[in-house]
Design a protein around this nucleic acid. Structure first.
Length: 923
RNA sequence: GGGUGAGUAGCUCAGCUGGUUAGAGCGCGCGGUUCACAUCCGCGAGGUCAGGGGUUCAAGUCCCUUCUCACCCACCA
């Protein structure tokens, strides 16, 4: 029994009740090997999909073989957070990446898709804290060690679920290389990276202004703050200047911070204040005396042109303070209440203090007025609490030296973005990036690898997991920094920490750098940017040449899915009803790269129908083959038939097949995943099923054995190739059907990707078959318009014009699809008398007369002809004008001009026929 | 304040390097128990491609501009 790690315990727990039953039932039926040729009547996605994943896994297809000298294809999976259920975002990335990896694997690349899971820092700690809250305890009640045990319990349960859920989607990733960010390997990578950066002076500890979340009680990076516009107030205060008895006006949106003011600043160019610079202001309430300074950062046009300076609680003020040597007075506790520096307001929350300070200022005559004011408020990305800027001692990554090479590689194309516009977004961010605050006052995460020695006050930075004694003085009085690192620090190392770095492993040598980084544009800065600069820094090489960015999955009306809105579409429910294949196909074809996807469940249903279409087409083909055999090539594939025996339809569909093969491959190479999928959809449904299969119903009944054999061979050839092209999109149904076809391969997953054979393309066959389709459409249309009984086989008189050969060779197909009785199809030579009471259909230079006397109205036919004449005349006018234009004829490419010339003469020919006909019937 | 994207049929969206008469799914109307498929088949209605200007022989596609919506970035006290 092969061990399938994600199945331990409750594989079926993820599914809803009804699905559970179905899966069990199906699981039993899967134990019976399917006989070739035996295909159930109806397509049942559950039946097709369950069991198949294990079947692939057990054969080891997900694990690539290292083949030195052969370039691998590598995608490192964006590790899902181990904090919850699979959602549509996961389904989208899993589908896109699986598609790429399956395609490249079929092309013969050793293909590695490395899965993982992320411990999710704050988010991870938060879910467990919420559980604890439900039990009425806090993490502090438990203590660090016990708390971390709880978190690990939770994480271990959920990392299993990630595997279960990805397996439902068919994700062909290599579980043998699965990594968790907190595993020993990646953890050592984190400590090593930290140490190397520290030794290089790129990590420093400093007292800086950071974003503080009073709810999470930790520092967070700029990126973790979301800004929201809010209508607030602007308070205009006046601060007295004792030496002159005058006042200076300042404006603020956060009056309570005046308790921490250490200066007032004005713009040096502002003439209103030139005399005041250097004077001392006595702050209300605290009575502290602070100077007026002049600083460029002040905008003279805002408010009064003078700013209160609170270096401890405002980024700009912090810088002003630095420049002028103003002290920073922190007035806040970690929980967001005010501390002793706030004097009488100690212990109050910010909101309380704000009310009370304003009251006091008003009472004492320092409040001039209050205005409404729209400004943006920073909120914690995680918990939506208002973030307080606060001075604090934290660890930072110095960005400038890391950013520069990361800018260069984007500019010179070493890293390319799909879609390209994200390059500008990336560059703009990278060029303006601030130093990155990486320490977090949390318990869950990678502990900062820094120890403080009590003995000699040395700071010890080490990649070792524990340091027991100070290397400088030997003291054992040594304590590790209590903080942990930003979860994105470990994420940034992911492209190589997953492959064994800092050790120089075989995996690292072979699989780094990766081929494509596929992820959401929402984490371009959080993650992609950091992988790029860390990759360059530690590996000396970018981690991937392409960044493919997908959008956000929204509901059908474009709303972001969220639990509170209740508009979440659960992928497990969708796959249970319509199958993973249908969901995958929908997600990929629903949009363009980088565009948000509005997921409409009716489209999933439509794509389930597509799977059903292929299912039934296969049933048809298998039946057509029956006991007769099709030719199989040495490599196991099904070759096309000998040219001589092919009908027009055979040559047409094979030509189309080769063209589609080229198009799909080209589009995939261009990351146009959706467009490639849509081409396959319309090829299979509209061309193969609607026209080619229908045409073979004639060929297979023909008396000619060679014709029949060619039809069977063509049916099988096109189907088998199409299934291979479609496999990366719909892996389950294509595998299931492929197993029923005659071939020598083990699995479609490892069958070679089709390469178009240009020698099989026959342009004239394509042209003539398209003529035939047009003729058939016209007849069908005329029948419908005239209300002819669908079951009635009618008569047709054909003046074939230049298409005599086509009619003769495809007469059966024409008759069958147009419902023209074979023995009532007559040909007339050019110049012969046309029938009088008949509908005349003109296609190219052929005319098809349908003597529908009794079923049609004479006047209606005249009317129809007139309207058609009208249309053709319009076309002649347009095309004629174009060709009369000297500029067009001389400047447009030759083939375009020729195409219009042909079009014009065709239209003229058609017009003549139509006019002639109208005359004949007395119009 | 800066930037990006979107605005195409009733709805949800395609349309990749500009080149005939702009497509799909769903929905809608008419007709169908054809031996692969009603999870289907045939036929049809429905669009001044947001408005305006420009480049070009040629624009849904490129440029400018206006409007509407969405998102991103930003030290607007």
């Amino acid at each position: 029994m092969v061990s399938r790690p994600w199945q331990r315990g409750r594989f079926f727990v993820v599914a809803r009740g009804d699905l559970v039953k179905r899966m069990w039932k199906v699981n039993r039926s899967m134990t019976r090997a399917a006989e070739p040729g035996e295909l159930p009547k109806t397509y049942d996605p559950q039946r097709v999909e369950s069991g198949r994943y294990d079947w692939w896994y057990d054969r080891g297809y997900f694990t690539p073989t290292i083949e030195p000298g052969k370039k691998p294809f590598v995608i490192i999976m964006p590790p899902p957070n181990v904090t919850g259920e699979l959602h549509m975002g996961h389904a989208l990335f899993a589908t896109a990446e699986d598609l790429l990896v399956r395609w490249r694997r079929m092309q013969g690349y050793p293909a590695l898709w490395l899965p993982g899971a992320d411990h999710a820092g704050i988010a991870g700690q938060w879910v467990v804290e919420r559980q604890l809250a439900a039990e009425g305890v806090t993490r502090h009640d438990l203590g660090r060690e016990k708390f971390l045990e709880r978190v690990w319990d939770f994480m271990n349960r959920y990392r299993e679920r990630i595997r279960e859920q990805l397996s439902i989607l068919g994700a062909s990733c290599d579980w043998s290389r699965f990594k968790f960010t907190m595993d020993p390997g990646p953890s050592r990578a984190v400590r090593t990276a930290f140490t190397l950066l520290y030794e290089k002076g790129l990590i420093y500890r400093g007292e800086r202004l950071i974003n503080w979340c009073p709810r999470c009680m930790t520092a967070i990076s700029d990126l973790e703050v979301n800004h929201e516009e809010e209508v607030g107030h602007l308070w205009l205060l006046r601060y007295p200047i004792p030496s002159t008895g005058d006042y200076i006006q300042v404006a603020t949106t956060r009056p309570e911070t005046m308790l921490g003011d250490t200066g007032v600043a004005v713009n040096p160019e502002d003439e209103r204040y030139t005399g005041m610079v250097g004077l001392i202001v006595r702050l209300p309430i605290t009575g502290r005396e602070v100077p007026i300074v002049s600083d460029e950062a002040v905008d003279p046009d805002f408010g009064s042109g003078a700013v209160k300076v609170t270096p401890a609680h405002d980024p700009t003020d912090f810088e002003i303070g630095q420049r002028h040597g103003l002290p920073a007075i922190n007035i806040m506790n970690p929980d967001g209440t005010l501390n002793a520096n706030a004097g009488p307001y100690q212990g109050q929350t910010i909101a309380e203090a704000r009310r009370n300070v304003v009251d006091q200022l008003d009472r004492e005559g320092y409040l001039l007025r209050v205005e409404e004011h729209v400004h943006s408020v920073g909120k914690c990305q995680r918990c939506e609490s208002v973030v307080e800027p606060m001075i604090s001692e934290q660890w930072f990554v110095k960005m400038a030296p890391l950013a520069q090479p990361a800018i260069d590689v984007a500019k010179d194309g070493t890293v390319q973005f799909v879609p390209e516009r994200f390059k500008a977004t990336y560059l703009h961010w990278m060029e303006n990036v601030h130093d990155w605050c990486i320490s977090r006052q949390l318990w869950w995460g990678h502990r900062i690898p820094v120890w403080y020695c009590r003995g000699c006050n040395e700071i010890v930075v080490s990649p070792e997991e524990t340091v027991e004694r100070c290397p400088a003085c030997g003291s054992t009085e040594i304590e590790q920094d209590p903080d942990v690192l930003d979860t994105w620090f470990s994420s940034g190392l992911w492209p190589f920490s997953t492959l064994g770095w800092p050790d120089d492993t075989e995996d690292l040598q072979y699989f780094y750098p990766g081929s494509v980084m596929e992820t959401g544009y929402d984490i371009l800065f959080f993650w992609v940017a950091r992988m790029i600069f860390f990759g360059i820094e530690f590996m000396g090489e970018v981690p991937f040449p392409y960044v493919y960015l997908h959008g956000t999955v929204r509901d059908a009306s474009g709303q972001r899915m969220s639990k509170t809105k209740g508009n979440v579409i659960d992928p497990t429910k969708v796959t249970a009803e319509y199958g993973s294949d249908a969901l995958r196909f929908t997600l990929i074809t629903a949009g363009a790269p980088g565009a948000d996807i509005k997921l409409d469940v009716s489209r999933v249903a439509a794509n389930r129908n597509f799977a059903n279409k292929i299912w039934n087409a296969t049933r048809y083909v298998l039946r057509a083959i029956g006991t007769a055999s099709v030719v199989t090539a040495a490599d196991g594939s099904i070759p096309p038939p000998e040219r001589a025996a092919m009908t027009l339809a055979d040559r047409w569909i094979i030509s189309r097949m080769e063209a589609v093969t080229d198009e799909v491959t080209r589009l995939l190479e261009d990351f146009q995943l959706g467009e490639a999928g849509r081409r396959l959809y319309s090829f299979l449904w509209s061309e193969y099923a609607d026209w080619y299969i229908e045409s073979t119903k004639v060929a297979l009944k023909s008396g000619d054995e060679a014709t029949q054999a060619a039809a069977r061979q063509t049916l099988a050839y096109v189907l088998e190739r199409s299934l291979r092209l479609l496999h990366p999109y719909m892996p389950f149904v294509t595998e299931d059907l492929w197993q029923h076809l005659p071939h020598a391969g083990e699995s479609i997953m490892v069958a070679p990707w089709p390469v178009a054979d240009r020698s099989l393309c026959d342009d004239s066959a394509v042209h003539e078959f398209e003529f035939l389709m047009e003729a058939i459409r016209l007849v069908r249309n005329a029948r419908a318009e005239a209300g002819v009984e669908p079951a009635l086989w009618i008569r047709a008189i054909v003046f074939p014009g230049s298409h005599r050969e086509t009619f003769l060779s495809a007469e059966g197909v024409f008759s069958f699809l147009a419902r023209v009785a074979a023995d009532r199809l007559e040909y007339r030579a050019e110049g012969a008398e046309p029938p009088e009471k008949a509908v005349a259909l003109v296609v190219s230079d052929a005319v098809i007369y349908l003597p529908l006397a009794g079923m049609m109205d004479h006047e209606a036919e005249q009317e129809r002809l007139r309207s058609e004449i009208n249309q053709v005349e319009g076309e002649i006018a347009r095309t004629g004008a174009l060709l009369a234009n000297e500029n067009f004829v001389s400047r447009a490419p030759k083939e375009i001009v020729n195409r219009h010339r042909e079009r014009l003469s065709a239209a003229e020919e058609r017009l003549a026929i139509l006019q002639n006909r109208l005359g004949e019937i007395g119009g």
